[in-house]
Protein backbone atom coordinates (compact mmCIF):
# COMPACT_ATOMS: atom_id res chain seq x y z
CA UNK A 1 0.00 0.00 0.00
CA UNK A 2 2.89 2.30 0.59
CA UNK A 3 3.48 3.12 -3.06
CA UNK A 4 -0.18 3.50 -3.98
CA UNK A 5 -0.53 5.97 -6.82
CA UNK A 6 -0.11 6.20 -10.53
CA UNK A 7 3.14 4.87 -12.03
CA UNK A 8 6.00 7.35 -12.16
CA UNK A 9 6.39 8.78 -15.62
CA UNK A 10 2.66 8.86 -16.39
CA UNK A 11 2.02 11.93 -18.54
CA UNK A 12 0.42 15.16 -17.43
CA UNK A 13 -2.52 15.96 -19.73
CA UNK A 14 -1.59 18.75 -22.12
CA UNK A 15 -4.79 19.11 -24.16
CA UNK A 16 -8.30 18.96 -22.72
CA UNK A 17 -9.07 17.46 -19.34
CA UNK A 18 -8.29 14.04 -17.89
CA UNK A 19 -9.27 12.90 -14.40
CA UNK A 20 -6.46 14.12 -12.11
CA UNK A 21 -4.91 15.51 -15.32
CA UNK A 22 -2.99 12.28 -15.80
CA UNK A 23 -3.03 9.90 -18.75
CA UNK A 24 -1.11 8.08 -21.41
CA UNK A 25 -2.31 10.27 -24.28
CA UNK A 26 -1.44 13.82 -23.20
CA UNK A 27 -2.55 15.34 -26.51
CA UNK A 28 -5.78 13.35 -26.87
CA UNK A 29 -8.83 15.58 -26.39
CA UNK A 30 -12.01 13.76 -27.37
CA UNK A 31 -14.15 16.86 -26.86
CA UNK A 32 -12.16 18.72 -29.54
CA UNK A 33 -13.86 16.31 -31.96
CA UNK A 34 -17.40 17.15 -30.83
CA UNK A 35 -18.11 19.16 -33.96
CA UNK A 36 -17.65 15.96 -35.97
CA UNK A 37 -20.27 14.03 -34.00
CA UNK A 38 -23.92 13.70 -34.90
CA UNK A 39 -26.32 15.97 -33.05
CA UNK A 40 -28.00 13.28 -30.89
CA UNK A 41 -24.66 11.97 -29.65
CA UNK A 42 -23.21 15.42 -29.04
CA UNK A 43 -26.20 16.38 -26.91
CA UNK A 44 -26.00 13.32 -24.67
CA UNK A 45 -22.22 13.30 -24.20
CA UNK A 46 -21.87 17.04 -23.55
CA UNK A 47 -24.69 16.87 -21.00
CA UNK A 48 -22.42 14.73 -18.81
CA UNK A 49 -20.05 17.65 -18.40
CA UNK A 50 -22.80 19.57 -16.63
CA UNK A 51 -23.09 17.13 -13.72
CA UNK A 52 -20.70 18.87 -11.37
CA UNK A 53 -21.24 18.02 -7.72
CA UNK A 54 -25.02 18.55 -7.86
CA UNK A 55 -27.04 18.38 -4.66
CA UNK A 56 -27.64 14.69 -3.97
CA UNK A 57 -31.27 13.66 -4.11
CA UNK A 58 -31.20 9.96 -3.25
CA UNK A 59 -28.52 9.98 -0.57
CA UNK A 60 -28.52 12.08 2.61
CA UNK A 61 -25.47 14.07 3.67
CA UNK A 62 -23.84 11.28 5.69
CA UNK A 63 -24.43 8.66 3.03
CA UNK A 64 -23.16 11.13 0.46
CA UNK A 65 -19.92 11.76 2.34
CA UNK A 66 -19.29 8.04 2.81
CA UNK A 67 -20.10 7.08 -0.75
CA UNK A 68 -18.12 10.01 -2.16
CA UNK A 69 -15.11 8.66 -0.30
CA UNK A 70 -15.87 5.14 -1.52
CA UNK A 71 -16.11 6.23 -5.17
CA UNK A 72 -12.86 8.21 -4.85
CA UNK A 73 -11.09 5.19 -3.35
CA UNK A 74 -12.25 2.51 -5.78
CA UNK A 75 -11.61 4.79 -8.76
CA UNK A 76 -8.37 6.16 -7.25
CA UNK A 77 -9.50 9.75 -7.76
CA UNK A 78 -7.02 11.33 -5.33
CA UNK A 79 -7.11 14.92 -6.60
CA UNK A 80 -9.07 17.32 -8.80
CA UNK A 81 -10.29 17.34 -11.48
CA UNK A 82 -12.54 14.46 -10.55
CA UNK A 83 -15.25 12.76 -12.58
CA UNK A 84 -18.35 13.32 -10.37
CA UNK A 85 -19.06 9.61 -10.06
CA UNK A 86 -21.46 9.76 -7.12
CA UNK A 87 -23.39 12.66 -8.63
CA UNK A 88 -23.90 10.62 -11.79
CA UNK A 89 -25.03 7.57 -9.81
CA UNK A 90 -27.38 9.69 -7.69
CA UNK A 91 -28.90 11.17 -10.84
CA UNK A 92 -29.39 7.72 -12.35
CA UNK A 93 -31.08 6.41 -9.20
CA UNK A 94 -33.17 9.57 -8.83
CA UNK A 95 -34.45 9.27 -12.38
CA UNK A 96 -35.31 5.62 -11.76
CA UNK A 97 -33.16 4.35 -14.60
CA UNK A 98 -33.06 0.59 -14.07
CA UNK A 99 -30.63 -2.06 -15.27
CA UNK A 100 -33.25 -4.64 -16.19
CA UNK A 101 -32.66 -7.11 -13.36
CA UNK A 102 -32.36 -7.45 -9.61
CA UNK A 103 -30.82 -10.40 -7.82
CA UNK A 104 -33.44 -12.26 -5.82
CA UNK A 105 -31.35 -11.86 -2.65
CA UNK A 106 -30.68 -8.14 -3.15
CA UNK A 107 -32.77 -5.06 -2.36
CA UNK A 108 -33.52 -2.42 -5.01
CA UNK A 109 -30.39 -0.63 -6.25
CA UNK A 110 -30.85 2.59 -4.25
CA UNK A 111 -31.45 0.62 -1.05
CA UNK A 112 -28.41 -1.54 -1.77
CA UNK A 113 -26.27 1.60 -2.08
CA UNK A 114 -27.59 2.94 1.24
CA UNK A 115 -26.77 -0.35 2.94
CA UNK A 116 -23.28 -0.26 1.43
CA UNK A 117 -22.81 3.21 2.93
CA UNK A 118 -23.82 1.92 6.36
CA UNK A 119 -21.62 -1.14 5.99
CA UNK A 120 -18.59 0.96 5.05
CA UNK A 121 -19.08 3.18 8.09
CA UNK A 122 -19.39 0.14 10.35
CA UNK A 123 -16.17 -1.28 8.91
CA UNK A 124 -14.37 2.04 9.41
CA UNK A 125 -15.59 2.10 13.01
CA UNK A 126 -13.86 -1.22 13.62
CA UNK A 127 -10.63 0.48 12.55
CA UNK A 128 -11.25 3.17 15.16
CA UNK A 129 -12.44 5.81 12.71
CA UNK A 130 -15.58 7.92 13.19
CA UNK A 131 -16.80 7.12 9.66
CA UNK A 132 -15.51 5.87 6.34
CA UNK A 133 -15.28 9.45 5.07
CA UNK A 134 -13.21 10.44 8.11
CA UNK A 135 -10.84 7.49 7.73
CA UNK A 136 -7.34 7.94 6.35
CA UNK A 137 -6.47 6.59 2.94
CA UNK A 138 -4.92 3.34 4.15
CA UNK A 139 -8.01 2.44 6.21
CA UNK A 140 -10.28 3.21 3.27
CA UNK A 141 -8.11 1.01 1.08
CA UNK A 142 -8.15 -1.84 3.57
CA UNK A 143 -11.94 -1.65 3.86
CA UNK A 144 -12.42 -1.53 0.08
CA UNK A 145 -9.99 -4.42 -0.35
CA UNK A 146 -11.95 -6.47 2.17
CA UNK A 147 -15.23 -5.45 0.46
CA UNK A 148 -13.92 -6.56 -2.94
CA UNK A 149 -12.72 -9.87 -1.49
CA UNK A 150 -16.03 -10.47 0.31
CA UNK A 151 -14.33 -10.37 3.70
CA UNK A 152 -16.39 -7.81 5.64
CA UNK A 153 -18.48 -9.35 8.43
CA UNK A 154 -21.14 -8.33 10.91
CA UNK A 155 -23.80 -5.63 10.91
CA UNK A 156 -25.00 -4.81 7.41
CA UNK A 157 -22.85 -7.53 5.91
CA UNK A 158 -24.85 -10.22 7.68
CA UNK A 159 -27.97 -9.21 5.73
CA UNK A 160 -26.49 -7.99 2.42
CA UNK A 161 -24.78 -10.56 0.15
CA UNK A 162 -21.37 -8.92 -0.04
CA UNK A 163 -20.21 -10.33 -3.38
CA UNK A 164 -23.34 -9.14 -5.15
CA UNK A 165 -23.20 -5.77 -3.40
CA UNK A 166 -19.65 -5.25 -4.69
CA UNK A 167 -20.71 -6.25 -8.21
CA UNK A 168 -23.73 -3.94 -8.22
CA UNK A 169 -21.78 -1.00 -6.75
CA UNK A 170 -18.82 -1.36 -9.09
CA UNK A 171 -21.15 -1.78 -12.08
CA UNK A 172 -22.60 1.66 -11.36
CA UNK A 173 -19.22 3.22 -10.52
CA UNK A 174 -17.40 2.17 -13.69
CA UNK A 175 -20.45 2.91 -15.86
CA UNK A 176 -20.41 6.48 -14.56
CA UNK A 177 -16.64 7.01 -14.69
CA UNK A 178 -16.05 5.53 -18.14
CA UNK A 179 -19.05 7.26 -19.68
CA UNK A 180 -17.36 10.58 -18.94
CA UNK A 181 -15.34 11.99 -21.84
CA UNK A 182 -12.47 13.00 -19.53
CA UNK A 183 -11.81 9.31 -18.88
CA UNK A 184 -11.62 8.70 -22.64
CA UNK A 185 -8.73 11.17 -22.87
CA UNK A 186 -6.88 9.28 -20.16
CA UNK A 187 -7.14 5.89 -21.87
CA UNK A 188 -6.96 6.95 -25.52
CA UNK A 189 -10.48 5.91 -26.48
CA UNK A 190 -11.57 7.59 -29.72
CA UNK A 191 -15.10 8.36 -28.49
CA UNK A 192 -18.13 8.81 -30.74
CA UNK A 193 -17.32 8.03 -34.37
CA UNK A 194 -20.46 8.85 -36.31
CA UNK A 195 -20.75 9.93 -39.04
CA UNK A 196 -16.99 9.88 -39.62
CA UNK A 197 -16.16 6.23 -38.84
CA UNK A 198 -12.72 4.66 -38.77
CA UNK A 199 -10.51 3.84 -41.71
CA UNK A 200 -7.18 2.68 -40.27
CA UNK A 201 -7.94 -0.51 -38.39
CA UNK A 202 -4.61 -2.35 -38.27
CA UNK A 203 -2.08 -2.89 -35.50
CA UNK A 204 -0.44 0.36 -34.36
CA UNK A 205 -2.43 2.54 -36.77
CA UNK A 206 -4.37 5.63 -35.79
CA UNK A 207 -7.10 7.68 -37.44
CA UNK A 208 -7.57 11.44 -37.48
CA UNK A 209 -8.66 12.49 -33.99
CA UNK A 210 -6.64 9.77 -32.30
CA UNK A 211 -3.38 10.69 -30.54
CA UNK A 212 -0.22 8.69 -29.88
CA UNK A 213 0.36 6.92 -26.62
CA UNK A 214 3.34 8.52 -24.90
CA UNK A 215 3.70 6.32 -21.85
CA UNK A 216 3.14 2.61 -21.46
CA UNK A 217 3.56 0.07 -18.71
CA UNK A 218 2.27 -3.50 -18.52
CA UNK A 219 -0.25 -3.38 -15.64
CA UNK A 220 0.10 -7.10 -14.97
CA UNK A 221 3.75 -6.44 -14.06
CA UNK A 222 3.42 -2.95 -12.59
CA UNK A 223 0.44 -3.62 -10.31
CA UNK A 224 1.96 -6.52 -8.34
CA UNK A 225 5.46 -4.98 -8.31
CA UNK A 226 4.14 -1.82 -6.68
CA UNK A 227 1.83 -3.79 -4.40
CA UNK A 228 -1.29 -1.93 -5.48
CA UNK A 229 -3.60 -4.78 -4.42
Amino acid sequence: MAKAGPPSGLCRQRRGTAPQMRGRYPDHDVLAQADHWDEATRRIVLARLRIDAPPLRVFDADEGATLEAFCDTVMAQDSDPRVPVLGMIDEKLHEGRLEGYRYADMPADADAWKLVARGLDEAALEHGCASFAAAPHDVRSQVCGAFSAGELRGGVWDELPIGRAWTVAMRDVVAAFYSHPWSWNEIGFGGPAYPRGHARLGVGLRDAGEADEEFSVDPAIDVPVRGLE
Binding site: S179, P219, V223, L228
Partner: peptide
Protein backbone atom coordinates in the same frame (compact mmCIF):
# COMPACT_ATOMS: atom_id res chain seq x y z
CA UNK B 1 -14.60 1.33 -22.15
CA UNK B 2 -17.49 0.51 -19.79
CA UNK B 3 -17.60 -3.10 -20.97
CA UNK B 4 -13.83 -3.31 -20.64
CA UNK B 5 -13.99 -1.86 -17.11
CA UNK B 6 -16.48 -4.57 -16.13
CA UNK B 7 -13.95 -7.05 -17.51
CA UNK B 8 -11.14 -5.58 -15.38
CA UNK B 9 -13.31 -5.42 -12.24
CA UNK B 10 -14.37 -9.05 -12.78
CA UNK B 11 -10.68 -9.99 -12.77
CA UNK B 12 -10.49 -8.55 -9.24
CA UNK B 13 -9.05 -5.07 -9.79
CA UNK B 14 -10.10 -1.76 -8.24
CA UNK B 15 -8.50 1.54 -7.26
CA UNK B 16 -5.09 2.39 -8.73
CA UNK B 17 -4.85 -1.06 -10.33
CA UNK B 18 -8.20 -0.63 -12.09
CA UNK B 19 -7.11 2.75 -13.45
CA UNK B 20 -3.80 1.26 -14.58
CA UNK B 21 -5.50 -1.60 -16.45
CA UNK B 22 -7.95 0.85 -17.98
CA UNK B 23 -5.17 3.16 -19.21
CA UNK B 24 -3.81 0.05 -20.92
CA UNK B 25 -7.12 -0.43 -22.85
CA UNK B 26 -5.63 0.05 -26.30
Amino acid sequence: PIGWAEHVVADGHWGYALREYMRDYN
